[in-house]
Design a protein around this nucleic acid. Structure first.
Lengths: 256, 256
DNA sequence: TATTTAAATCGGTCATACCATTTCCGCCAC
DNA sequence: GTGGCGGAAATGGTATGACCGATTTAAATA
C-alpha cells in the first residue's frame, strides 16, 4: 500500500524556538546564509562562541555536531572548527543515503538505476557545455584506460576520473553531487569485482563512444552511450557476483 | 520488538582508530546495517546505552545527534530515541543541500535544471512501470488541477501530488528521494510565485500530456513532456520574479 | 468505568574538570 | 642569520554529576 501523503515537505518551523540546540543550529545557518561565515572560515573557539550565543558549551557543541554531520562544518582537535571548503565540486555526505539503503532494503539494481539516470543526465548536459579542457581530460583518462587494460585497479581509477570529468563538464554541481553520492555507495562493490574484470577493452571502447558524442555536441547520443555503458557494467557486475557465492559482506568503514 | 538486552551492544574497543564518538556512530550504524535496529525501533535510554557501549553520556549523545542530523534517528524528550520510520517513500534531509547552495552560490536555474533532469528520469521510468493505481491517482490530481484553476494555492497542492505520484510510479525510491530533496529547496520560491500564476490552464494541460505518455507506456514521450512542462514552469517563474522589483500591476494580465 | 493525578522515565541543558592534539613562538645550536 | 627543536598556549574531545522539562505510565479517585 503506497501512501502518497502530500506532507513530504517538512516545514522545519523557521520560528520554532524549540530546543536550545536547534536555536544554535539556526543561528549558525543564518550566519552562513548571510555570508558571515564563508567556506574555509574558522569559527571562534567553542568557549567564546558559546558565550556569544548565550548557551553552554555542550549545547553549542550539539549544534556544531549536527552541522558537521551533514558536511557543513568540520572540527579538528587542537586546530578549530571550520566551514568546509571544497576545492572541487561540493560533496554531500553519502552516509545518510547508505543508511537509508540499509533501513529500507534498497537493492543494488535500484542503486544502479539511479546512478544510470543521473549519469545519463550529466552526459547530456556535458555534450552541451563541455569545454576544451574537459574534453582534453576525458581523452587523457581514456588513454589511461587503454594503457591499463592489464591492471584492473588502475583502470578503475581512470574510469572514475572519466565519469568525474563528465560530471564536471555538465556544469551542474547539484547533479554532480547527487551522482557522487550514489556512486560512493556503489564503489565498494565495484572495487571488489573489478579485480576479475575481463572486458576492460570493451569498457574503454564505450567510454570512447561517450567521449565522441560529447565532443560532437550530441546530447542524445551521449546519454544513450552512457546508458549502454552502464547497463553493460551492471550486467557484468551482476554476473561476477553470481559467481561469488553470495557472501553477505557488510563491510562498514565509510568515514570520509 | 527486538531484544536489546543481549550482547548486541559490545563495548567500544580501547583501541579506537578515530575519536570515541565516531566509534559510537560506527556502532550504531552497524546495528542498523545488521538489522538489530529497525525502523520504528526505540533505542535503550541514553544512560543505559552509554554504559553498554562503555562511553560517557555526552559522547553517546554526540553520536546520536550526528545520526539524527542526517535523518536516521529522532529523539523526543521524555519518550526516547527512535529509528526513523517513514510510512511513505523514504526522505532525505534537504538541509545539507540547502546549506551547500548557500555556501557555493547555487543559482535557481541550476536547481531547476537538476530537478528537471531528475523528473525526466522518473517520468521515463514511470512510463515503464506505473500501475493502474498510480495512473488513477495521476488522473485524479489532474482533475483536481482543472477544478482549481481559480485557486493557485490549491492548484499547487495537486501539482505537487501529481509529481509525487509520478515519482512513486517510477519504482525507484532513491531517485524519488533525491527529487524530493531538490524539490524541497525550490518549494518556498514556488509557493510565493504561484499566487500570481496566470497560466494554470496550460500547466494542467501539460500535466495531462505527461499522464497520457505514461499511460501509453512511452518513456521518451513522458520524459519529453516533463521537460517541456518544467521548462515552461521555470520560464514562468523567472518572469514572475523579474516583475517583483518593477511595476506592481497585479491585475488580470493574461500574457504568457 | 472514566477521569484525574502523581510518580517514574527519559531526553535536554548546564557547569566543571581534565585529556589529547595541534599550533605557534621563543630558544638554542649550528 | 638560519634552521631545527621543545614547550607552552590554544582548542576540540571526553567524562562526571546534577537538575529541568516533557512524556509516559499507572495508581488513585470520583
Amino acid at each position: 500500500m503506497t501512501d502518497l501523503n502530500s506532507d513530504i515537505f517538512k516545514t522545519i518551523d523557521p520560528e520554532h524556538r524549540g530546543t536550545t540546540s536547534e536555536e544554535v543550529i539556526s543561528q549558525l545557518r543564518e550566519m552562513i546564509h548571510r555570508g558571515d561565515l564563508r567556506p574555509g572560515d574558522r569559527l571562534p573557539p567553542e568557549r567564546d562562541l558559546a558565550k556569544m550565543l548565550g548557551v553552554s558549551r555542550p549545547t553549542l557543541r550539539a549544534g556544531i555536531r549536527s552541522l558537521a554531520a551533514v558536511g557543513v562544518l568540520q572540527s579538528r582537535q587542537g586546530a578549530g572548527t571550520f566551514v568546509v571548503k571544497s576545492d572541487g565540486p561540493p560533496s554531500l555526505d553519502s552516509s545518510p543515503l547508505r543508511l537509508m539503503a540499509s533501513l529500507h532494503g534498497f537493492t543494488p539494481s535500484e542503486m544502479f538505476e539511479a546512478r544510470q539516470s543521473l549519469e545519463m543526465a550529466v552526459a547530456g548536459l556535458a555534450a552541451e557545455r563541455a569545454t576544451s579542457e574537459h574534453l582534453a581530460t576525458m581523452s587523457e583518462e581514456i588513454a589511461g584506460m587503454y594503457a591499463s587494460l592489464d591492471d584492473p585497479e588502475q583502470f578503475l581509477v581512470h574510469d572514475m576520473r572519466f565519469h568525474q570529468t563528465v560530471a564536471a563538464a555538465s556544469g551542474n554541481r547539484i547533479l554532480t553531487s547527487l551522482m557522487n553520492m550514489v556512486a560512493t555507495i556503489l564503489f565498494d562493490v565495484r572495487r571488489k569485482t573489478v579485480k576479475r574484470a575481463r572486458d576492460l577493452k570493451e569498457s574503454a571502447e564505450m567510454h570512447r563512444q561517450i567521449y565522441r558524442s560529447i565532443r560532437e555536441r550530441n546530447p542524445e547520443a551521449a546519454s544513450s552511450a552512457m546508458r549502454a555503458h552502464l547497463m553493460l557494467a551492471q550486467k557484468a557486475q551482476e554476473s561476477e557476483e553470481a559467481e561469488d557465492g553470495a557472501a553477505a559482506t557488510t563491510s562498514d568503514n565509510g568515514s570520509q
